[in-house]
Design a binder for these strands. Sequence first.
DNA 1: CCGTGGTACCTCGGTCCCGAGGTACCCTCA
DNA 2: TGAGGGTACCTCGGGACCGAGGTACCACGG
Lengths: 183, 183
Amino acid sequence: MLEFAILGFLFDSRLHGWELRTRIAALTGHVRPIADGTLYPTIKRLADADLVLKNIEAGSIAAPRHMLEISPAGEAKLLHMLREPAEVFITDENHWYCLLAFLRHLEDPAAQAAVLRRRLVFLETPASFFYDGDKPLRAEDVDDPFRRGVLQVARATSRAELAWLKATIAELEAQAGRETVRN
Amino acid sequence: MLEFAILGFLFDSRLHGWELRTRIAALTGHVRPIADGTLYPTIKRLADADLVLKNIEAGSIAAPRHMLEISPAGEAKLLHMLREPAEVFITDENHWYCLLAFLRHLEDPAAQAAVLRRRLVFLETPASFFYDGDKPLRAEDVDDPFRRGVLQVARATSRAELAWLKATIAELEAQAGRETVRN
DNA sequence: CCGTGGTACCTCGGTCCCGAGGTACCCTCA
DNA sequence: TGAGGGTACCTCGGGACCGAGGTACCACGG
């Protein structure tokens, strides 16, 4: 997840660790702040695997900065993670939002649509948080006001996301169709 | 999180590990399935800490079952986690939903309302996933269709949840007021 | 009567991440 | 001029969870 976000931000531009830290904090920080004791070891791992390149530059303000740049191998890795995301990136909201933040890097509209379709399938499979035996319970079936809240909010989210997904998939697939005709 | 869910389910009734597993799978499983290699060590930790009590019973169907029961210390721990939840239970959606699933165990409506108020404060602090410098970007400000999707869906969720939160807090506080008058 | 599948529990190595700590540099302001 | 605060990077111990493996028991079908 963190690794993914790092590669995603570096795909756009060269950054140093500190700047990366603030961007990641913006993306996921209000939900789950990321400790820098997590960030730097992760950067080191990526550098050791040659997925990012490190250049030490004299710091303009404070300590010397380690400018980070994504390597061709890193780009390939990111694109692969975008094209065939792990299941948790489809089902877990935090992961999914993170994926969406960088999905534009996958330039092929058909491939983008395919990823959105996976999320669509996931959202359309009937599921609830609470069950009576095998039967998924709906908001109306539940007395507990807090559990009813969970179901109501989840339903509103689901509706909004389904609408957006369907519209966007249609647009992307139309675009993909036009590109196929042109070639 | 897992520890919390275990105590939450056991607060209601005695269960064995396997049954606990299916209930937790229902609650959080469609988002992030929980491995039984995680569940059993966690149960053991809780048992060692005397938060749950274990009784081995002859299995009616298959292997002998370890019936689990929450202890008074376990109940106290759960109620404390409900009354003063850690920050991540307020900000992270998965944690928050899990908290809501068991919030009814906290019988005092004023205490329940206080927890909902913490979530309200969190949702009302302006935040975005994307920034232009310091300025949080809104859906209309973003060109990338995927990032716009994130912002649109997040806004819809936020609206639905705020409406529910405000209505429920009002109800709970009215109830708390009546109870104060009565005593 | 033996294999398969479902129930129930457990172990162990490994990954991801946290958080509390530390170092070093530079700027600002009293 | 020196104390405080912001920038930038790093280490280390530990906790939560995964996942691939294993054991054992029972029921059912061929």
